[in-house]
Amino acid sequence: MQTGASPKMTLPHVGVLNPLRGSQRVKYWLALPAFVFIIIGIIYPTGYLLYNSMTNWSLTRLDLGQTFIGLDNYVKLLADERFYSSLGITATFTIATTSIQTVLGVSLALLLNRNIRGEGLVRTLLLIPWLVAPFISGFNFRFMMAPNIGVIAQMLDALGLDVITKTSILGSPKTALGALILVHVWNGVPGTMLVVTGGLKTIPEEIYLAARVDGADRLQLLRYITLPLVRYAILISAFLTTLFIFKAFEMIFIMTGGGPGDSTEVLAVYQYWVGIRTLNIGYGSSIAVVQLLVAFIVSIVYARLMFNEAE
């Protein structure tokens, strides 16, 4: 990710003022405000979250106050079936969305990278789903997918697939998660396409020319030149997608509320349900802490991959 040369400079000292000596300190001053801002912003809520997660604080029972109860919430969490089910759903949701979105995003980027007239316009139009507020899209899809009154249901019906509409797309545990995955892919694929297109544009034309002279066909070009060269861009977009999807909440909450049953209750929804809906701040915070930990581990894994890639 960082490719800049190391800051060792071997420049002659010029002028009365020494710009280099100044820069030794100035470099810290430049970074300080942002760093302080970020660190305070992380430490304060994280500390508060950790503390809350070790208390019994419930806004339903404010009369009981806030008592320190050590790791009790975590002990309870480890025995909580709903938590494991939620963890599993989150994993399925995150992995499925990220992989479909990445494959689709890369395909779109490749498809729209052939220097054909109109390509830029198509790419731009495809960006729109990414730019609309997620909660608007959530309602839009919820209404579109509704049986009878929803336009998607009516179209499927017209195609003779009334099996689907009769059971209701978001109303059946069999199809709800799949529908949510597709909607999130729809929303996020333009971002992936954009990052990968960026990567594709860095590949010098000469490499392809040389390879063609050597008799490589299209598939070989893709397999041995294009994909390896955009691997880093793909990795970055997959990383951002994973983080984003892992904490995705709004569209899920609007479209299914975590239902039917528990079938779409990802961690973010479970945490909302406990921490905000039932106002059990203590227990909700412990779920949040675990969620944070999982996300942190995932990002360390990605960071390793990316550092390896960058070296």
Partner: peptide
């Protein structure tokens, strides 16, 4: 009781009834 509004009607009933009407229990 305070718990009835937020926890029973807010969580226990909607969640389990949703499982029930979707035919899962």
């Amino acid at each position: 009781i305070p718990e009835w509004g937020s926890m029973v009607r807010g969580d226990v009933l909607p969640r389990n009834l949703s499982i029930f009407i979707s035919g899962e229990s």
